[in-house]
């Protein structure tokens, strides 16, 4: 199903599935499941930025966490550098984390308030490397200068920094072990506009310098267009469309992608966006609709859509769409 030879991919996600049990009552009986991620497959090549976009509750963050096994998937496989992560023990995965890291959305919450910058940055190194005190200091200071901070800030605690600085520290903490693969979950959405650009630039620079593969999770379509090489659009736990970023933004094929892209407000008051209005709301993932997950809101819905869930099909080189109506 992947277009590229899986051997070229650094990350190969196959039929990933994450269901969360819904428990009720005194005995905590399982009464149903939230279908957070449903049969998601994609690949990430070395030094590539792959973006997962979608609206809240579409399963993009869960996918990111499940790929790194921070959440246990209920089905499917994740191959990282040719190795099946799903088959590893917890301890083996833990050692792998040196090479695959996660950047969190909210820097205000993801840094332990009782640890100063030195502890925050040296901790990952201590876990994965056996370094002398001097080497440790050197690598921490090198990373610190890389994110535009100075050694005199090492003694400070997270609450003494602004949001942008905190996110710089989070990024440094994730990248200090020199991983080859990073999942960044909405890394700038908690920040002000003028700070977002600073952080995005830093991430892009580091991504190129360190030759990182990046899965970039975001709801901000402008940011995604700027930062990513390829995009996957998610809706209600399923991938609806994937492809090269420019190609997908210029020629969105799936009706949902079209609506999503048209909803972005334009920055030109003389040429307001022609919105394709979607009626209603996203269905409840605990009780997903039959057939195509988007059929309840789709203008092109037919009988076929209500009955059968469309699979991802290639409509142009490296451009895959899950829709019955796209040729």
């Amino acid at each position: 199903m992947s277009i590229i030879n899986p051997k070229d991919a650094l990350l190969d996600v196959r039929h990933l599935q994450v269901y969360f049990p819904i428990k009720r009552g005194l005995m905590k009986r399982v009464v149903g499941h939230v279908h957070a991620v449903e049969d998601v497959s994609f690949t990430v090549r070395p030094r590539e930025v792959f973006a997962l976009v979608g609206e809240s509750g579409c399963g993009k963050s869960t996918t990111g966490s499940a790929v790194l096994r921070l959440i246990e998937p209920t089905g499917g496989e994740v191959y990282f550098g040719g190795e099946n992560l799903s088959a590893l023990t917890e301890e083996q995965v833990r050692l792998k984390r040196r090479d695959m890291q996660f950047i969190f959305q909210n820097p205000y919450a993801s840094l332990n308030p009782r640890m100063n910058v030195w502890k925050l940055l040296s901790e990952p190194l201590k876990v994965h490397f056996d370094l002398s005190a001097g080497e440790l200091r050197e690598r921490v200071e090198e990373m610190l200068s890389r994110i535009g901070m100075t050694p005199d800030q090492l003694e400070r605690y997270p609450h003494q920094f602004s949001g942008g600085q905190k996110q710089r520290i989070s990024i440094a903490r994730a990248l200090i072990t020199h991983p080859s693969f990073v999942v960044a979950d909405e890394p700038v959405s908690a920040l002000d506009v003028s700070i977002q650009a600073q952080i995005l630039n830093l991430m892009m620079e580091l991504q190129q310098e360190m030759e990182l593969s990046l899965v970039f999770i975001s709801h901000d379509l402008n940011v995604v267009r700027h930062i990513s090489n390829r995009v996957g659009v998610m809706y209600l736990g399923s991938l609806m469309e994937t492809g090269d970023t420019e190609e997908l933004y210029r020629h969105p094929a799936h009706p949902y992608t079209q609506a999503l892209l048209s909803a972005v407000p334009s920055h030109d008051p003389l040429h307001k966006s022609q919105h394709i209005m979607l009626e209603g709301d996203v269905p409840n993932p605990a009780n997903p609709p039959s057939g195509c997950p988007f059929h309840t809101r789709c203008g092109r819905c037919t009988e076929e859509c209500r009955k059968h869930k469309p699979a991802l099909r290639e409509i142009a080189p490296d451009h895959l769409v899950a829709c019955h109506h796209v040729e």
Partner: peptide
């Protein structure tokens, strides 16, 4: 900062 998004340059305009 917002309109340079999606442009040719990979570098975003920033206000320091």
């Amino acid at each position: 900062a917002v309109t340079s998004l999606g442009g040719e340059s990979r570098k975003l305009y920033t206000i320091p």
